[in-house]
Each structure stands twice: as structure tokens, then as C-alpha cells.
Design a protein around this nucleic acid. Structure first.
Lengths: 209, 209
DNA sequence: GTCTATATGGTGATAGAC
DNA sequence: GTCTATCACCATATAGAC
């Protein structure tokens, strides 16, 4: 589980709506082109409501980002402990990750966008800390995959590759889903599952013994 | 070669400096957090100079984007025609792509950022056309890889996979370099070559027969 | 907790000197 | 072709009613 949890947010006080709507706006228009008014309008409210919960647009973006990461953890961590060799578990994790990218498309699009915000100018010290937090969480997420990759190498189910590079490449292949994946209107869970399997299979075949 | 060429730009009239500097700013701070004044300051000039060549910040961003794409084509197209089976040529293309991502880190970071700009609000019809242009060029780039993948499937050097999905996944793995790759201060061409080989090898092993 | 105002500032963009 | 000076706008953020 994530240590750096949000304290109160998304507790059903109406805040989850803001998060969801903001995610959608940020996905469609990007951070810069999205105004607080845009989010408010889509909520059927005014910005007074948003500023009651978030002290800035950046804070809002960061909280969407954090929620996106949390959902990734919730998808991947449970399957990390299944029975099987390293490569078997790795496959399950990658598949779960891919599914989460599609299921939570808006939130994960914000995560991918957030990855580009290195030193977003004019952030307050507080925001700087929050960003560092998010970076640490992302690193922890990558760590999950590195760990299982290493276990796979140790148990012989995965070739003797460079763990760090392979992890980044595999995660890149899957994260890239957020760039091109758009759900068809009549898309089923099965369709997504099929797509996930295909992407993951080539990634797994690239590293397995 | 790219058909939709810039007409005059990057012809050594001093404009190339603007492009280079803008690329750096956009890479470090992102589109929204980069002001025209930032770019000008870094150029040791004022924004008058920039507005002499570009009519808007978006236009400038788009031109950096286009230059980034052009460099990718220049890296990949030459090796596309080498002797060898589909998988051999694919490997060479992916390696060239990965090298270009690192060599032109700033420009390619803008390309990757630009991918998120779907319907950037408030663009003029003219900018909208330019964006459509860029999207078409990106698609053409992906097409190069799909073509060679297909040739590999036909000549039996590549497994019978879904071409479109595999292309996107492989390109994602390589494009993701722009997210995490930071050149070491004493890095050599050889170091980059080694890194590229490692990434590409797992991608190739994932699809070859 | 959400609204309606409003202030404030920054930044994109322009005009005109040189 | 580049500068200085300035405009004009708009989005962030705030204050205070309800």
C-alpha cells in the first residue's frame, strides 16, 4: 500500500466528483489548456466549489495524479503475490497494469502527463514537496516490477538482463497505452483483456528464458 | 522524407538558435510553464526577436515538434533500406530511433509532450491545421515500423503478431526514453549505443520467430 | 459548502523606434 | 532584425454573501 496517503480526500463528501471531472478535463485538454472554470462548468458548479477543496490548480492536478498512482498500486499489488515463477507473476502484474491504464484512462493520462513536470516553475515549497512525493511513489511502483524481474532472473524463468532498463522499457510500452488507447463505444472488458494480453505477451517474450 | 517541410526555417539565419533554445525550455519546464520571456532570456535576447519569426508560442512549440519528427525520420529512414530480413531491418530502425531519442533529447521531449495535445483549446484554424499535419507525420513514422514488421512476418523472421499493437508497444518502450533518460556528464556515444541495444534487444526478442 | 463578485498579476502579443 | 515599451486579456485566486 501507499504510505503517503491522502488524508481526507475522496471520502465521498462530494470531492470524488471534482477529482473525476478534473481527470477528464486534464486528459482531454492537458494541464495548461484546462482552466479551473472548465472543470467547474463540467461539474455544473462554479469555481468556488473547487477552491473550497483545493488551494490551487496545481494542487488539484497533483491530487488526480496521486489517485491515478494509487489505482495502479491497487491493481498490481494483489497479483504480485500469486503462486508461480517470476515470469508468471511478472506477466500477471503487467496485465493488471495494462488493464488499469485502460479502465482508469483519465487518471492514468494525468499520471503520464505528470511525468513531464520536472521542475514546474513557480511552485511553492509545499507543491515542490508534493511533487517529490509523487516522484517517490512512481519510483516505488517501478520498484515492484524490478523486484519481480530480479526474482525471475534468480529462479531462472527470466533471462539475465539489465533489470532497471528492462523495467523502464516494459513500463514504457504499457504506459504508452495512455497516448493511443481510446475505448470503442461498444467495448467490453474482454476486448480490453485481449489487448492487454497482446501487449504483455510480446513484452514477456522479450525477457523470458 | 517529410513532405510537409518547413519552408525557410532552420536555414542558419539565426532561427536555429531559437528552435534549439525553445526545445530546451520546453523540455525542462513543459509547454505551459515556459514563457516566451523565458526562451528569450535564455537566448540572451528579448521576445521581439522570437515574435519576428513566430507568430505565437504555440507556433514555436509546433515548429520544435516538427523538427523533432524530422530528425527521427532522418535517423530511421536511411537504415530502413539495408540488406536483411524484416527482423534485421526492424532492429536497425529501432536502434536508430532510440539513438535519436537520446541525441536529440530536447526536441524529442517536445515530440512526446506534443502527443498529449489532442484538442488544445483556443487554437486558431491555422494552428489546428498545423496540429493535424504533425499528427499525420507521426502516423507516417509509425507506418514505417508497421511496414517492416509486416515484411518480417511475410518473410518468416517475425512471429505472426498483431502489427499495429506491436508497433505501438515497441515505439512506446523507446519513446519512454524521453521520460527517464538523462545523459551522464561524461557519457559517450558508446554508452548510448549500449543502452539502445539493450532496450531494442528485448523488444526484438519479443516479436522474432 | 457553494455561490457571486472582484482583484490581481502574469504573459501572450503588438507597435514603433532604431 | 532586434530592441523597448505597453496593451489587453484572461485565468488564478480571494472575499464575502448566503
Amino acid at each position: 500500500m501507499i504510505e503517503n496517503r491522502r488524508q481526507v480526500r475522496t471520502d465521498g463528501t462530494g470531492n470524488a466528483d471534482i477529482l473525476e471531472t478534473a481527470a477528464q478535463c486534464f486528459m482531454e485538454q492537458g494541464f495548461s489548456a484546462t482552466s479551473i472554470d472548465d472543470v467547474a462548468r463540467r461539474l455544473g458548479a462554479t469555481k468556488g466549489r473547487i477552491y473550497h477543496y483545493y488551494s490551487s490548480k496545481t494542487d488539484l492536478f497533483f491530487d488526480v495524479h496521486r489517485e491515478g498512482l494509487e489505482r495502479l498500486f491497487q491493481a498490481v499489488e494483489p497479483v504480485m503475490g500469486i503462486e508461480g515463477s517470476g515470469v508468471v507473476r511478472l506477466r500477471a502484474m503487467l496485465t493488471a497494469h495494462a488493464m488499469a491504464m485502460m479502465t482508469n484512462a483519465a487518471f492514468e493520462a494525468v499520471v503520464v502527463q505528470g511525468v513531464h513536470m520536472h521542475r514546474m516553475a513557480a511552485t511553492t515549497p509545499d507543491q515542490r514537496r508534493t511533487l517529490d512525493d509523487l516522484i517517490a511513489i512512481r519510483r516505488r511502483f517501478e520498484g515492484l516490477f524490478k523486484q519481480v524481474l530480479q526474482e525471475g532472473v534468480d529462479d531462472g524463468s527470466i533471462r539475465n538482463i539489465d533489470i532497471s532498463i528492462s523495467a523502464k522499457a516494459m513500463l514504457g510500452a504499457i504506459n504508452w497505452l495512455s497516448v493511443w488507447y481510446r475505448p470503442a463505444s461498444d467495448e467490453t472488458e474482454m476486448d480490453r483483456q485481449m489487448l492487454a494480453e497482446r501487449i504483455v505477451t510480446t513484452q514477456i517474450d522479450g525477457v523470458r528464458s
